[in-house]
Design a protein around this nucleic acid. Structure first.
Length: 453
RNA sequence: GGUCCGGUGGCAGAGUGGCGAUGCAGCGGACUGCAAAUCCGCGUAUGUGGGUUCGAUUCCCGCCCGGACCUCCA
């Protein structure tokens, strides 16, 4: 079994991954705040950590993968206030949309998907521990974390408290002892969601939910914590501070993994910049699997610049890979060591894909066993698992574009007759007609076949 | 301004102290009535100036450029 090497943000270097308990790996990944449709940037960590989960399941006997749903947040409240839709309806609908979108790009569900609102009790318990330990204080209905009480504050994100202060451009609330102190609990008005607590009716701050849910499902110390690089500060820094102070003997997450940002024209895709493309938009233009391939073509720590041209390129590449699968659909899947090794190299998906292309070429050339290895290698990446005949099903959808399967087959018959009488003008006319409907004909030794172009 | 990351062929994108992967696109060829698909072949790249070294794209320093974070954000 190859050694898994991962780049740990905490140490900023590549490290051999050694789980606390080799018989049970524990991983936590920050999930979505459910107030709006997921965009392509939101999909990247999901796909990246889905590949990691598949790899970990192969390398270790057991994995518990937790990815939360944050369903209490001021952005959700704001959305409800704007639209008039009930908060519960927004979060339920958005969660369902998220599940559907992630399934469309081949991401398996995590083992546990806890919702923040179901863990307010744990959050309150954590906050009480922090107050008892002198790491938090109540002020004007809020409870704040005292960054000065934690000497290691800033270690994860590589900042000193002074630097943070120097860069602070945010207005400092008067009840904060230190500008860097952050909210653990805040008071809610009647209209806002709230829970009874020792500090009155209120709601949790942004970071505490992850500390609560990782603690509940993975314990005080666990192996891997993942998320987007934009979460490194303040979210992960604060999360770590809370958890380490609440459990002074723990180490919280041993390995921190951060994926790079998705860019559009060289700039980060984000809701606030308005340059985002929802997954729905992307899925209307290409297969979910092509989107997945697109996301895996770049190493997870590098930025990835999205373009529609890049998506269609991924679509072309995927089609070609599937031609390898189609060459021997019944071949027994087998996972090549080379694929595992590529992924063990800090999840080097570009290297893994290069190997996949080589397997596809072998499979197209008629090597049956290679076709099985292609299928098995694809499985580790969450690719190439569809029935090759899926193309025909997709073509059925082209009915709306003016041709049915029966039309296509009838035209092919006419064309075959024309070709037999060497009426090539007629044959070419038929091919051109089908091409107009996005159908490409291929004259092979066994007759004429067709596919989506 | 501070911190961090990165600059590789037309595009995308890896690796590596010593012949610079892979894919897409392009070009040539085989095959085809013509195509498509497939196969074979070809071309062009390591931002810039120094340093270390027998040798640097790879290590070190400066510069230029780009991005992220420092504020809600995957």
């Amino acid at each position: 079994m190859p050694e898994l090497v991962l780049h740990n943000t905490l140490t900023r270097r590549r490290e051999t991954f050694v789980p606390q308990d080799p018989s049970h790996v524990r991983m936590y990944v920050c999930g979505p705040t459910v107030y709006d449709l997921a965009h392509l940037g939101n999909a990247r960590p999901v796909v990246v950590f889905d590949v990691l989960a598949r790899l970990l399941r192969r390398l270790f006997p057991r994995l518990t993968y937790v990815r939360n749903i944050t369903d209490v947040d001021d952005k959700i409240n704001a959305r409800a206030a704007e639209s008039g839709e009930a908060i519960g309806d927004i979060t339920r609908r958005t969660t369902a949309d998220f599940h559907a979108d992630m399934a469309a790009i081949g991401a398996l569900p995590p083992d546990i998907e806890p919702r923040a609102t179901a863990h307010v009790g744990e959050m309150i318990a954590l906050i009480e521990r922090l107050i008892a330990g002198g790491h938090a204080y109540a002020a004007e209905g809020h409870v704040l974390f005292a960054v000065a009480s934690f000497a290691q504050y800033g270690r994860l994100s590589g900042r000193s408290p002074d630097e943070l202060l120097a860069g602070a451009r945010v207005e400092v609330a008067p009840y904060k002892r230190d500008p860097g102190d952050f909210v653990l609990w805040k008071p809610s008005t009647e209209e806002l969601p709230g829970w009874d607590s020792p500090w009155g009716r209120g709601r949790p701050g942004w970071h505490i939910e992850c500390s609560a849910m990782s603690w509940r499902y993975l314990g005080e110390t666990f192996d891997i914590h993942g998320g987007g690089s934009d979460l490194l500060f303040p979210h992960h820094e604060n999360e770590a501070a809370q958890s380490l102070c609440a459990f002074p003997d723990s180490r919280f997450a041993l390995t921190w993994l951060h994926n790079g940002m998705l860019l559009v024209n060289g700039e980060k895709m984000s809701k606030s910049l308005g340059n985002f493309v929802t997954l729905r938009d992307v899925l209307a233009a290409g297969e979910g699997e092509a989107v997945r391939l697109l996301l895996l073509k770049t190493h997870y720590r590098s930025p990835l610049d999205f373009s529609w041209a890049a998506l269609s390129e991924a679509q072309r590449e995927l089609d070609r890979l599937y031609r390898g699968v189609e060459a021997a659909p019944d071949a027994e899947a087998e996972t090549p060591d080379e694929m595992v090794e590529a992924l063990c190299d800090d999840l080097n998906t570009p290297r893994a894909l290069a190997y996949l292309y080589a397997l596809a070429a072998g499979a197209r050339a008629g090597n049956h066993r290679t076709a099985g290895r292609l299928r098995g290698a694809g499985a580790l990446l969450g690719l190439l698992q569809a029935d090759p005949a899926r193309r025909l099903q997709e073509i059925e959808q082209l009915n709306a574009r003016g041709v049915t399967r029966a039309d296509i087959e009838a035209l092919i018959e006419q064309r075959t007759s024309a070709r037999l009488t060497r009426d090539f003008a007629r044959a070419d006319a038929i091919r051109a007609e089908l091409a107009g409907h996005g159908i490409v004909l291929e004259d092979g030794s066994g007759g004429t076949t067709w596919r989506r172009g």
